[in-house]
């Protein structure tokens, strides 16, 4: 039979445990709410971006018709008469982005094939980090490189009268070099996912490594390769400093990569650097251009990820 004091001490113990339980529960509740608040910030960021871009653009489109904006080919918002044809900025952006996309696809796919199909593991472990360094170099440094190294070489090749100091080709080539590691990594991931047995079957039929790579691995990994190209171009469209430093500030709808152009991002930065009063039509143009840029890159990113998930081959 338990004495009264024993019962009392047991009760104390139970109460202490219960108190600690309650405290732990309260701590969990507090931190769960703090974590929810942290998650809220990323939602608010998206909401903020959309609200800011749309609300400022609404003010812009009240004064300039969307039709004129989207179909006009002359862009001169800072001069009079003002012209708001965004196509010349879009054209400049796409010209650089396509050059960058082609360069990064050629280099990235080539190096992905070499690293995943040819290179021995030890060589791969040395080469891959070196290429990854390219992705960590700031874009302003690439801009410097394009302007002071690549452009003079282009001028020597094509002639100084043909190549303007600020040109789309130099910016595109250097941007391609910058995006190459990303395209290479994404393509390589897709190729590594192709099962060994498919390769072995082709080798057993007497195929060479080149035939295995081009007729088995690349077709099997095609969705990943296409996606890496789309995501790379999207990255190039949003890139700012290289085009601002090396591609010029002349809105110009052209297919000639040796000419000076102005990219959408470079225009946004140019206006922010100047003394454009807040609320003026010129000020609102950067948000309208920003909205278009946002929609373009978002669409490409969604398509890129959709291609990866939709066409991913399922192997056992």
């Amino acid at each position: 039979m338990a004495t009264t004091s024993e019962i009392q001490s047991n009760r104390d113990l139970f109460e202490r445990v219960a108190r600690r339980r309650r405290r732990q529960h309260a701590e969990q509740t507090v931190f769960t709410w703090l974590l929810r608040a942290a998650v809220l910030i990323s939602i608010l960021t998206t909401v903020g971006i959309v609200i800011i871009l749309v609300s400022q653009s609404v003010g812009f489109f009240a004064e300039v018709s969307p039709w004129e904006f989207l179909t006009g080919t002359e862009w001169a918002p800072l001069f009079s008469p003002q012209k708001f044809g965004v196509l010349s900025l879009v054209g400049g952006t796409l010209l650089v982005a396509v050059i960058a996309g082609l360069v990064s696809l050629t280099l990235g796919l080539g190096s992905a094939i070499f690293l995943s199909e040819y290179a021995p593991e030890r060589l791969r472990r040395v080469l891959k980090p070196i290429l990854e360094v390219l992705a960590g170099i700031p874009t302003v440094v690439y801009g410097y490189f394009a302007l002071t190294f690549v452009t003079p070489i282009l001028q020597n090749i094509f002639g100084h009268d043909q190549v303007i100091v600020f040109n789309a080709l130099s910016a595109g080539l250097v941007m391609g070099l910058m995006i190459m590691p990303m395209v290479s990594t994404l393509s390589e991931d897709a190729m590594v996912a192709v099962p060994r047995s498919l390769r072995d079957a082709a080798y057993a039929l007497g195929a060479t490594r080149f035939e295995v790579s081009t007729k088995v691995v690349i077709p099997a990994a095609l969705s990943g390769i296409v996606a890496s190209f789309i995501l790379g171009v999207s990255r190039a469209i949003g890139e700012t400093m290289i085009v601002k430093i090396a591609a010029g500030a002349t809105p110009n709808l052209t297919l000639n990569p040796l000419e000076s152009i102005q990219a959408m991002t470079a225009y946004i930065v140019q206006v922010s650097l100047g003394e454009t009063p807040q609320g003026s039509l010129e000020y609102k143009t950067i948000f309208a251009v920003g909205l278009l840029l946002f929609v373009m890159t978002l669409a490409m990113n969604i398509v890129g990820r959709w291609v990866i998930s939709r066409f991913r081959q399922q192997y056992e």
């Binding site: 998650v39 990323s42 949003g238 930065v269 946002f294 978002l298």
Partner: peptide, 22 residues
């Protein structure tokens, strides 16, 4: 939410500049 965060990672940095400015 996860999709939203993946999309935010792909938004051009200059757009964040506009967000911060406004």
């Amino acid at each position: 939410i996860e999709l939203n965060i993946a999309n935010l990672a792909g938004v051009p940095s200059v757009i964040y500049g506009l967000l911060g400015l406004a």
